[in-house]
Design a protein around this nucleic acid. Sequence first.
DNA 1: ACAAATTCCGAGCGGAATGCTAAGATATTT
DNA 2: AAATATCTTAGCATTCCGCTCGGAATTTGT
Lengths: 145, 145
Amino acid sequence: MHLSTRGHYGLLAMFDLAEHYGAGPIPLKTVAERQNISDNYLEQLIAVLRKAGLVRSVRGAQGGYILAREPGSITVGEIIRAMEGPIAPVECVSEVEPTECDQADFCITRLVWTKVRDKLAEVMDSISLGDMLRDAERLSAARKA
Amino acid sequence: MHLSTRGHYGLLAMFDLAEHYGAGPIPLKTVAERQNISDNYLEQLIAVLRKAGLVRSVRGAQGGYILAREPGSITVGEIIRAMEGPIAPVECVSEVEPTECDQADFCITRLVWTKVRDKLAEVMDSISLGDMLRDAERLSAARKA
DNA sequence: ACAAATTCCGAGCGGAATGCTAAGATATTT
DNA sequence: AAATATCTTAGCATTCCGCTCGGAATTTGT
């Protein structure tokens, strides 16, 4: 049950952009440095996020990346699906194009994986970048107190 | 968010043993054939389950494998942990020995992964092989009707 | 016009994990 | 003994992961 660094870094980068939402385009190098990720590598990852329509890019000097939508309307689930593909503990219960299996009708383990998948999707879809920003505020407030 | 075949096959094998619980030791070859898994490969996988104390083995002719406990007392979570290691979408929130991270205290994504991990564990721990047997009965009853 | 800053794109690559196969050693039953 | 199983280890092809690198294209500022 492991995520690859794609999803891990992808969420870090998106959250970083969320924290600076409204401040114009953020160069990738800045994000990479703040999140301690190789910027060469992050470049490839953000390309995926862009193609998925989750970030907008501005080329040239003073350019960078901006969230395509408000932080509150982008969920962790969307980001993870973009980076890691459809949610599916095993392929035969993939959210899209589950692989055929002639025993699917009476496969009990399949029921299990379906439940797992649904819970997974439920948690991830229920958390937005906006929620995370609020958590961050609460945390830093508690820290000061 | 993919399981390897280890967890997948592991659960299939355990469920097969559950379906024949009480009928004495089941040879691995039989399980492999019924579940359509390479028996050479399954041999390695079941060794892990045995070391985890989830199945007992009987060597020699007429030997095979038996669940170490009642189906109702063995959960999917146990099986998956045995086969795939501690549940953890990312390492820094692993159930055991989470890797150190100097930013752990104010890492918001970490909170997300913790929630994901907990939900994952919750579903898997809430389903036992006994539950699956009941589902199987219900399904075959519905099929006959 | 030119230089600097940036995104964009694709090639390549070492290492690790995955999913097996295979072969033999060991134990038990008949 | 012979047959039936588990047990153990080695190996191996393929794929994926997590990068690095080089350079082209685009925009801004001087």
